[in-house]
Design a protein around this nucleic acid. Structure first.
Lengths: 147, 147
DNA sequence: ATTATTGCAAAACGTTTGCAGGTTC
DNA sequence: GAACCTGCAAACGTTTTGCAATAAT
């Protein structure tokens, strides 16, 4: 994690009178360095390498906190919705590879017309959405093509 | 459930050498009549009124089966992704009311340009997506406005 | 010093599985 | 009557909770 990121995290935490602790750093660093989305158990396994005293309970609590603060986002996949990935921008979405689990972040433009239309036809006031794309990443495509 | 729906269900099941049983009818009817998405536990509670011998295990198995056949769809919400709603068309999406839980089905047009753009920039081959809209339904808006 | 955070152990929870008996085709 | 489906009870993995000890401000 770059220095500015530590700074941003620290600021974000301070705003809510929260503390920057080693377990929290370990969890965030772990997810930031992964290029896939990770389940709580997997975060625990990896983050424990950085900070061996880490407890699973703390991982759960930290994932929730960091997601609330916007540093992480829950990723919904076909199998479930209990994995997390890092986000650079607030409210972004993920493209996930159904083959290797790799994730790629993307911004959602082009959804506005749909939102407008739905609001008009249904009378709902739309406040948010969940959007994930599922596909096969370039390297898996290549591997499949050759294998 | 209308007669044609029973017919369709029966056909769908037969195609996979599956049987039309009372528990399965009870589960499907329950979800078809609800205007919200339902958790497995809630389906169990309601469907048991129709068929008291029903077991929770069967509800889980039936939800999976009917979702595979395309009669139900898992709905992803902020809280989780373990609720199911009926679908008229295959691959549709839901608008869900964060206030009362009501769901409304909608088709996803307008996503194609985004898919195209993502495929071009990332090299992923996109095969599917998860999309849910979250908002407040007309009657909840009214209630809030008055209360 | 004050307050938030941690890790542990245990509890609670939702979901899945093996299997004998029952139901549908 | 063959194949499939069911419900039960038990097993399972995941998530949450209470609490005394610890670490950050």
């Amino acid at each position: 994690m770059a220095t500015t990121d530590v700074q941003m995290l620290q600021d974000g935490l301070r705003r809510g009178r929260r503390k920057l602790t080693r377990p929290r750093q370990a969890v965030l660093d772990t997810i930031a360095e992964a290029d896939t989305c990770l389940s709580p158990a997997e975060v625990y396994r990896r983050a424990k390498a950085r900070y061996p005293r880490l407890g699973l309970t703390t991982v759960y609590r930290t994932l929730e906190l960091l997601a609330d603060l916007g540093y992480l986002q829950r990723v919904h996949g076909d199998g479930g919705c209990h994995s997390y990935a890092a986000v650079q921008r607030h409210h972004s979405h993920h493209l996930l590879c159904s083959c290797c689990g790799r994730t790629e972040e993307f911004a959602c433009g082009s959804l506005d017309p749909l939102v407008e239309a739905l609001q008009a036809t249904t009378g709902f006031h739309i406040e948010g959405h969940i959007l994930e794309m599922i596909g096969v990443c370039p390297s898996c495509r290549e591997r499949k093509g050759q294998g």
